[in-house]
């Protein structure tokens, strides 16, 4: 019985695309002073991968570049969505980044705390307890 590696290739491309995109968007959005340059780089990189995918005759390379290109194009949009999460306080703001410092000054919901950085406790928590829980877990 012969093995078809295309599903595994597609799975690896999708998983790495999501994982690396997730981490890169978080780190770059946190540190970039202006968002337009990472957005532009993601758009160019994503389009380049799609063109490569269209032109290559190698079926596995065609698969991997096709998937990675689209996930990187999506990341361009995620930079904008991530900044909205910072404004809501759903991801921590970086006070040393002037763009985030301005968000902290203008949006009372923004915070420097990472409220998701803990294990679940199985019940609803209020905002004071949410802060206590992340402090407890950092100390333990």
């Amino acid at each position: 019985m012969s093995i078809n590696p295309i599903g595994l290739t597609a799975a690896l491309a999708a998983f790495l695309g999501i994982w690396l995109g997730h981490i890169s968007v978080r780190i770059i959005e946190r540190n970039a002073k202006k968002l337009w340059s990472p957005i532009l780089i993601a758009l160019v990189l994503g389009l380049a991968l799609e063109i490569w995918s269209l032109l290559t005759d190698h079926w596995l390379l065609n698969t991997a570049t096709g998937i990675l290109g689209i996930t990187i194009l999506w990341d361009a949009l995620e930079f904008v969505r991530q900044e909205k999460r910072v404004k809501k306080g759903h991801v921590p703001a970086n006070p040393f980044n002037p763009r985030h410092a301005q968000i902290l000054a203008e949006h009372s919901s923004a915070t420097t705390l990472d409220l998701l950085n803990r294990d679940p406790v199985g019940r609803q928590v209020n905002s004071d307890e949410a802060v206590q829980l992340i402090a407890q877990q950092e100390n333990s």
Partner: peptide
């Protein structure tokens, strides 16, 4: 031109 990768990429976007 080979459209398989591009079409699969768009399908992947919907699955994600």
């Amino acid at each position: 031109m080979n459209f398989f990768g591009l079409a699969l990429g768009i399908a992947t976007l919907f699955i994600i």
